[in-house]
């Protein structure tokens, strides 16, 4: 009996070994969400973080021109916004210094999967925590997902599991932005009721309803207006502002009131 079993094992050892490896691989795939948070199996571990960071340092000068142009454009925008926006801001009840910006660089980034992530060169020791927002000079790009001591991983806006509360800047109607196109240039804005006046080229910005992003961070422009068949809601194709294939400098946004807001909202859910 045992001999027969051993003979069986020997005869089919290749197939058995293949099935075992494939089973491990596939269960890693099905549970990737849980495993990737453990840091050993993602791109923020010591080895992978080091490799990406070294490579980034070597090649950084190649992007200098476009990075500089983007930063200059942002400076001009801030400069122009300074007078009008800043005063309004401080008159509101919320503390204008509620959001703290931490500069970081994208050292690895993907755009071609259905669930994309980016690795940043700042980690827990720099004050990064899970659930902080990530914006590039041209708009919102993701949310911190996992943190190691010196690196962190953000879930990209180009991830089918990610939803971003956003609104039409012109009339303040808000909806939920999500990405399902496998095309790094476009996302879809949903949940805007059909009676609202929506036009192509309307600007989409963050709504500020989550504690992650401040209000008014650019996201993109409406490219195509379509009513969702069967329901009275729009399905708006949004051309994203940031060029996800060339992300470099970003800011990680810490909301000093995040804990307070979340506690308050949790209390509501518990009622």
């Amino acid at each position: 009996m045992i001999r027969a079993f051993l003979q069986f094992l020997e005869k089919y050892q290749l197939l058995i070994f293949f099935l075992i490896l494939e089973l491990i691989a596939f269960s890693l795939f099905l549970n990737r969400h849980a495993y990737q948070r453990t840091r050993i199996l993602n791109s923020s571990n010591v080895v992978t973080g080091f490799v990406f960071n070294s490579y980034r340092n070597i090649t950084a000068y190649l992007d200098l021109k476009s990075s500089n142009e983007e930063l200059v454009a942002e400076n001009i925008r801030l400069y122009n916004a300074h007078q009008s926006d800043f005063f309004q801001f401080s008159q509101e009840s919320a503390d204008p210094n509620r959001f703290v910006y931490l500069p970081a660089r994208v050292i690895n980034n993907s755009v071609s999967h259905s669930r994309n992530f980016m690795t940043l060169n700042k980690g827990r020791l720099d004050g990064v925590e899970v659930e902080m927002g990530v914006v590039s000079p041209s708009g919102a790009v993701g949310v911190i997902y996992s943190v190691s001591d010196r690196y962190s991983i953000a879930i990209s806006l180009l991830n089918e599991q990610f939803r971003l509360s956003s609104k039409i800047k012109r009339n303040a109607y808000f909806g939920s932005l999500h990405w399902n196109t496998l095309d790094a240039r476009y996302a879809v804005l949903e949940e805007i009721p059909g009676h609202v006046d929506v036009q192509a080229n309307d600007t989409i910005v963050t709504s500020g309803y989550s504690s992650i992003f401040p209000e008014g961070i650019p996201i993109g422009l409406i490219e195509e207006v379509k009513l969702n068949p069967g329901s009275n809601f729009y399905q708006l194709k949004v051309k994203l502002n940031p060029d996800f294939q060339r992300l470099d400098y970003v800011y990680i946004i810490q909301n000093r009131d995040a804990f307070e807001i979340q506690t308050l909202e949790k209390a509501l859910q518990n009622d």
């Binding site: 691989a25 795939f29 990737r32 791109s43 992978t48 690895n108 992530f117 690795t119």
Partner: peptide
């Protein structure tokens, strides 16, 4: 697995390459 860990695509390339 090496490719997966670097690309944050756990299991994807492993399954295909095996």
């Amino acid at each position: 697995l090496s490719i997966d860990i670097f690309s944050n695509t756990l299991g994807l390339h492993t399954t295909a390459t095996v």
